[in-house]
């Protein structure tokens, strides 16, 4: 009798958990879509997060999938397989973002350099034009930057 009650309680708990996971995944879905809609998140990264949410839903709906996957990996507690997968996912993502930031910094540097050099060149050209347009005063003290 008590065994049956315990089984029923476990069943309720599991159902509750599964619903919880599905709700969480739904929230992630909505959040990601909203961020894309506001152009706060690029599609390429949105797809990554949507895929993560899909995996969560599949694991919640497909009973026994996690157990069989963790069993085939010789991980005795299914939840540990989940944690391990999540951890690897997060680490891989962080490494990827470090790479993205490195590339962006490099591009940022190149842009800053080019902007500064163009700025100096335009300044020199404008100075030259101003002189050409009747401003006959030759300022021998300043070196016209655009002068060749």
């Amino acid at each position: 009798m008590s065994l049956l009650a315990a089984a029923r309680v476990t069943e309720t708990t599991v159902t509750f958990q599964r619903v919880g996971v599905i709700v969480f995944a739904a929230v992630v879905f909505v959040l990601v879509f909203e961020l894309v809609r506001r152009r706060a998140l690029m599609e390429r990264y949105a797809l990554l997060w949507l895929a993560a949410a899909v995996v969560l839903v599949v694991l919640a709906v497909w009973r026994g999938l996690l157990t069989s996957v963790s069993g085939s990996l010789h991980i005795y507690t299914p939840v540990n397989a989940l944690f391990a997968a999540g951890f690897v996912f997060a680490i891989a993502l962080l490494l990827h973002f470090s790479m993205v930031i490195s590339r962006l910094s490099e591009q940022n540097k190149i842009l800053a350099q080019r902007l500064a050099l163009l700025d100096e060149r335009v300044g020199g050209l404008e100075q030259g034009t101003a002189r050409g347009n009747g401003d006959a005063r030759v300022d021998s003290g300043t070196q016209a930057a655009g002068k060749r």
């Binding site: 540097k109 500064a116 700025d119 100096e120």
Partner: peptide, 19 residues
């Protein structure tokens, strides 16, 4: 009397010298 190239923000000594 120098020529001046002004970077829009601080990019660090390496990138400045490379400029």
């Amino acid at each position: 009397g120098a020529r001046v190239v002004s970077l829009p923000f601080n990019v660090g000594i390496g990138a400045a010298v490379q400029c």
